[in-house]
Design a protein around this nucleic acid. Sequence first.
DNA 1: AAAATGATCAACCGCGGCTTC
DNA 2: AGAAGCCGCGGTTGATCATTT
Length: 313
Amino acid sequence: MGRAPCCDKSGLKKGPWTPEEDKILVDYIQSHGHGSWRSLPKLAGLLRCGKSCRLRWTNYLRPDIKRGPFTPEEQKSIIQLHAIVGNKWSTIAAQLPGRTDNEIKNFWNTHLKKRLLRMGLLHPDPSDTSPAAAASRHMAQWEGARLEAEARLSRESLFAHSASAAAAAAVTNLSVNLPPLKPEPDFFLRIWNSNVGDAFRKTAAASATFESSPESSFTRQSSAAVVKTEPPPAAREETESKSCVTGSGPPVVAGMDDSSGSNDVVDDVSEESYQLYLDFGSGDDDLGLFGGQVGAFSSLFCSDLNVETSLDC
DNA sequence: AAAATGATCAACCGCGGCTTC
DNA sequence: AGAAGCCGCGGTTGATCATTT
């Protein structure tokens, strides 16, 4: 279906915003709200398209924008979230108050991505068949199997809970119109039923045909830090068709491996970024990648993943 | 001092999804 | 049901500043 272009109308200004335009936009939104972005420019008296106004407001003028460099905690969060959701900048931004998707995207592309590539922790090409990439696939298979087991246990415990609740209700002549079963937030089950779980299952299936060397044994900690996620097929097709410049879709984050041959360049990496990597998979709990972050991430999974169960968030 | 190169980031573009009619 | 409109997202571009040669 065709779409009427938004910004190519003659007379509409493009390019950098002037302070005067900024003031007009801020004044208007503060007194009227943005309402319909499409009609806002006309109502506010701006020679801009609505799209440009929205971008300027959300990325720059919004009062809750947090300026300044990213803190180590924020960087760590970005790395962790990116390993989980890939280039879902808006999803990542939602977990970092005051940061915009555009800012995070730029920061990733100009800082974090380069650092991780230099450190050999990121493989730009998912189809890479190098030993390092192979190792990461092996990791994904391992992680997928573990997640599946966790999910199965969760289902079983949920079923047990459900059955006992039904029995109790029958005994007490209560309506068996269940779900007063207010389940505890079941993290593993949600993940497993989400796109993330789907990606793991697909990865595991793909890896099943992959010949991994018998000596590829990895520590639990490193495996937790190593997750290869792939977007669902639709998303993958979309990104592949859209872009060929940057490695779109969630990249492979691999553990430190000798085969990357990058030991000599790791020295270039700052101690701080290296520490970020070390912190990355060092959670005390069993789910290293999510170490200590489950609470913070739960809202992410509630809001952004297609959880097919009826579990409440 | 000036040109070349690299890094950064604000802004644009085009597409997909959702909503409305 | 499907066409049209709108919004938001992710990828890309280009201007500007910093650094190097």
